[in-house]
Structures are given as C-alpha cells and as structure tokens.
C-alpha cells in the first residue's frame, strides 16, 4: 500500500507538485493522466525517490520513505520502474540485464537469478532473445525486456512512466498486452500513460493531474463519462 500525504515537489522556484494526497491499495492499478507538464512523471518518480520530495510524506507499507532514516536502496528494491526510453543496459545481454540486480543487490546465485530471468523472459515472450544485446531489439521488445528486468527483483509495486510513448504505433499493443497480463497477477501498479483506452480498461482508479494539483481521483467509468472538473473535461475532449 502506498499513502501519499501533502506531497510537494519544487525545482527551484518552480512548483511541480502541489499538496498531493492520495492512496494506492495493495493490488490496485492506478492510471495517472493529465496534460504534459502537469507533474505526472514527477509524482511517479517521487514514489521510488528518483525525485526527492520537497515536503510531505510518502508511506509504502507504513514505512515513511521520505524520512531521512529510511534506507532508500531497500525501498527501491521493492518498487520496480519501467521508463519511457527503456534504459536497458546496452553493454549487457538481455539475460544479464535481468540477472544483474538480483545477483548484485539481492545476492542471488547466478543459477537462481538465471532461472527467474528465463521464466520472466518466457512470460514477456522474449526467451529466444536472451543472449542478444539490446541494440538488436525493436522498441517494443526492449520495453518488454525492461518490464521483465524490473520484475526480476520481485517487487510489490510497479511504476510505469509513459511505457508506450516512445514506441512505434504497431508496437504499442505488445507492450500493453504484457502489462494487462501483469495486472492479472495482482501486483500494485501506478501507470503514467496517454493511452486512454488502456487506462479505462485496466485501471481501478484514475488520477488526473493538472498544473501540479491532483484535480480528480475517481474510478475510470466515472472519470471518463462524467469528469467533474472543467479542466478534465477540456482535456478529455482533446484526447478522446
């Protein structure tokens, strides 16, 4: 469970997140949407402390990750992240991309980490590419490997930062399909996305951000059919 209380994030004089409070229950899938520059990615990146909040608190399973005493590395081991630009390690094969952190961080043996990795590669349909380098893969394939890499740490929470935004249109579906399969496993997911159809289909809740404010926090049916705020209405008119 993730609980966010009065989260504020500023970059110098620029306030990117203003007093955000919400909660994501265990197993819940939350879609974070909004216009560009609204703070979606920053909110997501605060949850694994890639951005350090300026004020407020974030609790993951009742541990305050914003407390200076908190072991950030420990938190991150439990929170997987998938990036817009994949960020695979280009000098490592697909398999070593998956086994590196489990071996280095969790101390798994090569055999154990390899077993988990091959299992995950099978699940994302990338088994036959295990020994390839990332440069040989298409965007969609890279992103599926990146999802598997994050899952290899066996996290409780998965964060997705616009996972399909850098993909060619015909590759979007293969990544969304992997994510849909992931939803069924019951893992907690926070997804920043511009794929409204996908958000509507898989999300339990939609968070709509605008100008750093959390403007709406509603189930997708309610949000997409009857958004309360003007800002959300305008946004949906443009994107739907």
């Amino acid at each position: 469970m993730i609980r966010i209380e009065h989260l504020v994030k500023s970059f110098g004089p620029l306030e990117v997140l203003r007093d955000i409070s919400t909660q994501v229950d265990t197993g819940e899938v939350v879609a974070i949407i909004g216009p560009s520059g609204s703070g979606k990615s920053t909110l997501l990146r605060c949850i694994n402390l890639l951005e350090v909040p300026t004020a407020g608190h974030i609790f993951i399973d009742s541990i305050d990750i914003t407390s200076p005493k908190c072991d950030i590395l420990k938190v991150r081991q439990n929170v997987g992240m998938v990036f817009q630009h994949f960020n695979l390690f280009p000098h490592k094969t697909v398999l070593s991309n998956l086994t590196y952190a489990p071996m280095k961080v969790r101390g798994l043996s090569k055999a154990d980490a390899g077993k988990i990795a091959l299992d995950l590669l099978a699940k994302v349909g990338m088994s036959e590419k295990a020994d390839q380098y990332p440069s040989r893969l298409s965007g969609g394939q890279k992103q599926r490997v990146a999802i598997a890499r994050a899952l290899a740490m066996e996290p409780d929470v998965m964060l997705f930062d616009e996972p399909t935004s850098a993909l060619d249109p015909e590759m979007v579906k293969e990544v969304l399909d992997v994510m849909k399969a992931l939803v069924k496993t019951g893992i907690t997911m926070c997804i920043v996305t511009h794929e409204m159809g996908f958000a509507r289909e898989v999300a339990d809740r939609v968070l709509f951000l605008d100008g750093g404010y959390l403007v709406e926090d509603a189930p997708p049916d309610v949000f997409f059919s009857a958004p309360k705020s003007d800002r959300a209405q305008q946004f949906l008119e443009k994107v739907l």
């Binding site: 694994n48 890639l50 590395l73 420990k74 938190v75 991150r76 081991q77 439990n78 929170v79 997987g80 992240m81 990036f83 630009h85 994949f86 960020n87 695979l88 390690f89 280009p90 000098h91 590196y100 952190a101 280095k104 961080v105 890499r149 994050a150 740490m153």
Partner: peptide, 30 residues
C-alpha cells in the same frame, strides 16, 4: 552516458559503487 542508465540502476536498488563500476564506467570507457 545517458542519465537513464543511472536512473535504471537506482530504480533497481543498485548502490552507488556497483552502479559506477558495472554500469556507468564500462559505458564511459568504451
């Protein structure tokens, strides 16, 4: 080296030293 490499390592819970030695420096030296 793309800053995404650093972020990916951090997001996996990799500490500064192994991140530098295993991820960043090999790419830098290349």
């Amino acid at each position: 080296v793309d800053k995404g490499q650093r972020e990916a390592s951090m997001s996996l819970g990799v500490a500064y030293r192994p991140m530098m030695l295993d991820i960043i420096l090999p790419q830098a030296f290349k």
